[in-house]
């Protein structure tokens, strides 16, 4: 069973719709007992970093999440803000992140010469692989994914970087450190490409 963590941040409906389409066993929950039993976790998220951390801190889930992810090493997938919360901190806020990934979320530094690059980075974009991962196994040709974000993750350990995407410069569009996976884009809104990625997370981790 996969638990999609409901902490009041983000569009859970879309993720549930796609997971159901691929036949995954998923529940939406903010319950400690459910998270204790989960085989995998998904941390979604749309919105501001501090709101996300505040909600997580208030949810009473932090210690069980740390246990399951860091000690028991069950697979966890962060989506968009969810992935940014895995880091230590963000330029968007003052609260500490989960600290599972050595890095931080920073605002897009757009070159004023390229001022036609609008923030947020919104729309379809490609990804360039930096290392192998089952998350992208048997991926369709020329994959593209849907992005909506003003901040992105900067990894301190380059080995954590799974893919990069270029928007003015190269940024981390997905990451993986052992059982901890994060994607900046929205697989649940990325057609067959996102469906394949989520199916890989369901089947191959």
């Amino acid at each position: 069973m996969i638990v999609l963590i409901n902490y009041g941040m983000g569009n859970l409906g879309s993720i549930v719709n796609m997971l159901q389409k691929i036949g995954a066993d998923v529940i939406v929950s903010s319950g400690v007992e459910d998270i204790k039993k989960a085989k995998k976790l998904i941390l979604p998220g749309v919105g501001a970093f501090d709101n996300g951390m505040k909600n997580l801190n208030n949810s009473g889930l932090l210690s069980i999440l740390n246990d399951r992810v860091l000690k028991e090493k069950i697979p966890v997938l962060g989506i968009c803000l969810g992935m940014q919360l895995f880091t230590r901190k963000s330029e968007e806020g003052t609260l500490s992140g989960l600290g599972w990934i050595d890095g931080e979320a920073i605002r897009f530094r757009v070159d004023p010469v390229q001022k036609d690059l609008k923030i947020p980075h919104m729309g379809w974009d490609t990804v360039a692989m930096c290392k192998q991962s089952a998350l992208f196994d048997d991926m369709y040709q020329e994959p593209r994914f849907y992005f909506v974000h003003s901040y992105h993750v900067a990894c301190n350990d380059k080995n954590d970087i799974l893919t990069k995407t270029s928007y003015g410069y190269d940024f981390v569009s997905s990451l993986q450190r052992e059982n901890i996976l994060g994607v900046q884009f929205h697989p649940e809104k990325s057609h067959k490409f996102g469906m394949k990625l989520l199916k890989n997370f369901v089947d191959r981790f």
Binding site: G13, N17, V148, E188, K189, S190, H191
Partner: peptide, 8 residues
Amino acid sequence: ASECFMPF
């Protein structure tokens, strides 16, 4: 929405 696997 349950049929929309693209931004909607």
